[in-house]
């Protein structure tokens, strides 16, 4: 005999599939929605549906967007000769939040990992090379993560882009704001020393 009504059980099971949500949290969320006003639940349902129906991949930068080209690629104010290469769409958000980058993006959708079987063909690397060949570019910023996988991906892209007149740069690395020198690891500290700047 079923103890909980099927629609409730169904929603609990769907919630429980989400990352970081266990059966108890799934139950709590379901009963929270059950007690919520109907228009709030409808808005959530609409937002969920639109996530799949109204989202496209930008054919230029491969970011997920509401239109193709996306808001950034289609913006005449943005510097089209400057491309910032990132691993994930969330990295675009992080860089946009700084408010100082006025160029465009290229989203790879992952990092190379020979052990996981992720090769250059599984990422949007060939598209980046095409873009570099067909667009008049000034600079490509390799903003993959500052770790072995990210460096590996950046090294591959830099080699694949050669020979080329485009300036290829990598994000600087060093000490985080609000950090404590004593706790910095040797690798980060060494890079911070290498990349030190004249005090202004």
């Amino acid at each position: 005999m079923q103890k909980i009504a099927a629609p409730i059980q169904g929603l609990i099971e769907e919630f429980a599939k989400l990352p970081g949500i266990g059966p108890k949290t799934a139950q709590r969320l379901t009963f929270f929605l059950l007690r919520s006003p109907e228009d709030q639940v409808t808005r959530l349902a609409d937002a969920l549906r639109r996530l799949k129906t109204d989202i496209v991949t930008c054919s230029t930068c491969f970011n997920i967007a509401a239109s193709d080209p996306c808001a950034i690629c289609g913006d005449p104010e943005r510097d089209q000769s400057l491309i910032c290469v990132v691993e994930e769409p969330l990295d675009v958000l992080a860089i946009e939040k700084t408010g100082i980058f006025r160029g465009t993006f290229h989203v790879l959708h992952g990092a190379l990992s020979p052990v996981e079987g992720i090769g250059p063909k599984d990422l949007r690397i060939e598209e980046l090379i095409q873009r570099a060949r067909t667009t008049d570019l000034r600079e490509i910023i390799l903003a993959t993560n500052p770790n072995y996988e990210g460096d590996y991906t950046a090294t591959h892209i830099a080699q694949a882009l050669q020979p080329s007149a485009i300036k290829i740069t990598r994000l600087a690395r060093g000490l985080p704001l609000g950090g404590d020198l004593e706790y910095a690891d040797e690798g980060t500290l060494a890079r911070a020393l290498e990349g030190r700047r004249t005090f202004e």
Partner: peptide, 21 residues
Amino acid sequence: GEIRERYEHLSRTYWHATAGY
């Protein structure tokens, strides 16, 4: 953690970084 030895050049060439993997 405390690093005893860093293979810092390894990830700077594609072949050597692949060899590390």
